[in-house]
Amino acid sequence: MRLRGIAVVGTALVAAGLVCPVSGQATAIGARPVLVSPNTPRPGERIDVTVPGCEAAGSGRRWARSAAFTGTVTLTGDDDLGVGTAVVRRDARPGVYDVTARCGDRTIVGGLKVSTKRPWPGLLPTPLNAQIADAARLKG
């Protein structure tokens, strides 16, 4: 009986997580996105910045900057993909920040949403959750 209660509570928590996604996911804004990983950066966290379609034509310089970053990020990578690593400022407040990427003579503007909240734990079953689910199935 107790396992069934745990399963019900677990199901409710998962459903709530799907209905109300975690605030603080990094999002791209604009036609040419600026991708950020991990997708829920917090202040002080190191993140990967990827800019598809960021060719080094013209001046050949590629960089990205944001008020959320500790400094300007140099983008490297293939001719059509700019990649770099940034650090979110420790004093960055939760909210949306512009991310400007310079790709040769072109400018790509995206966005980043920073949060101080921790992300939900993975939704994949852990060994303990799998044991609980198996026990609940056996009890019927």
Rank of each mutant, 00 (worst) to 15 (best):
F69K: 03
V96D: 15
A12D: 03
L112Y: 03
E55C: 07
G44H: 04
L75I: 05
G95H: 11
D78S: 15
G111T: 10
T76D: 08
P127M: 06
G110A: 02
C20S: 13
G77Y: 02
A56W: 01
R89I: 02
D91Q: 05
A28N: 15
V19E: 07
D80F: 04
G60A: 03
G10K: 09
A28F: 08
D78I: 11
G95K: 13
P127R: 07
D48E: 14
K113A: 12
K117C: 10
T107Y: 01
G58H: 01
G82Q: 02
V36D: 00
R90W: 07
N129K: 08
L138Y: 08
V19R: 14
G111C: 07
L35R: 14
L3Q: 12
T40D: 05
K113D: 10
A12R: 05
V88A: 05
R46T: 15
N39E: 13
A135L: 12
R65Q: 15
A130I: 08
V22T: 13
G30D: 05
S23L: 11
G53S: 01
N39K: 14
T72K: 01
A92F: 04
V88W: 03
R62D: 02
G58R: 01
T72P: 01
A133E: 07
A133F: 03
R61D: 09
G71A: 15
V14G: 04
T85L: 05
L81S: 11
R46F: 12
T126L: 05
T11D: 03
G5C: 10
N129I: 08
T107Q: 04
A136C: 06
A26D: 09
A57I: 10
F69L: 09
I47A: 06
T74N: 02
G58N: 02
P52E: 09
A64D: 10
R89E: 03
D78R: 15
A67Y: 03
T11H: 08
A135S: 10
P119F: 04
R90E: 14
V14D: 04
G5R: 14
C103D: 00
C54P: 01
L138G: 13
C103P: 00
A28H: 12
A86P: 06
L123E: 13
V88T: 03
V87H: 00
T126K: 06
W120A: 09
P119M: 07
E45H: 11
A15I: 13
R102Y: 00
T126A: 04
K139T: 13
A31C: 04
D134Q: 11
S115L: 02
F69A: 05
V88F: 03
A136R: 12
I6K: 04
L112G: 02
A12W: 02
P125R: 06
Q131A: 13
P119K: 09
P127N: 06
D79Y: 10
P121G: 10
Q25R: 15
V87I: 10
G24L: 01
R32T: 07
R118V: 11
L112R: 02
Q25V: 14
A31G: 07
V8R: 13
R90S: 15
A31E: 12
P121F: 12
V96N: 14
V51I: 15
A15L: 14
V88P: 03
V73G: 00
P127Q: 06
V14T: 11
I108F: 07
G71H: 08
W120I: 11
D98G: 09
R137F: 12
V87L: 04
K113T: 13
S59K: 09
L13Y: 03
G24F: 03
A56L: 04
G140Q: 09
G53A: 01
G17P: 06
A16K: 06
